[in-house]
């Protein structure tokens, strides 16, 4: 069973992703901020990480910057999940090392398709 880590400071946001992905047959782990995301990632070694960009303390950019420096996470697919829809945000995320980019509110079909594509 493939493992997915979801980091989002809002509990409903985490639960939504968990529900959708569990139904699709993934094992889902949660983190409620950037620091916790780092700890969880290092202990479970997920196959895919979904990172909210806006989190208090260490944000999504801070998390990916640290993870990408570690050999174990150099190639792990990491999806940015953000409620910001300004132009240029996607480019900035891709430049920071994200493999995918999904804006909130998510459409369930799009989330499933993106996860499936990256774990294929």
């Amino acid at each position: 069973m493939k493992k997915v880590l979801v980091a989002d400071d809002k509990a409903p946001g985490r639960e939504l992703v968990r529900m959708v992905l569990e139904k699709s047959g993934y094992e889902v782990f949660e983190a409620s901020d950037g620091e916790q995301a780092l700890i969880e990632a290092r202990s479970v070694h997920p196959d895919l990480i979904i990172l909210d960009i806006h989190m208090p303390g260490l944000d999504g950019f801070g998390v990916i910057e640290r993870l990408r420096k570690e050999p174990g996470f150099a190639a792990t697919p990491i999806i940015a999940l953000t409620a910001s829809a300004m132009m240029g945000d996607r480019e900035r995320a891709m430049a920071a090392g994200f493999t995918g980019y999904i804006t909130k509110p998510i459409r369930l079909g799009a989330l499933r398709a993106e996860v499936e594509r990256l774990l294929a």
């Binding site: 959708v20 806006h54 300004m86 804006t103 909130k104 509110p105 369930l108």
Partner: peptide, 27 residues
Amino acid sequence: LASMSHELRTPLHTIIGFSELLAEELE
């Protein structure tokens, strides 16, 4: 407006996502 948009999209994410999930009747 840009920051309002961000703040509004966050709860909408939950509302749209869960209503879609309920409508799929997987639960």
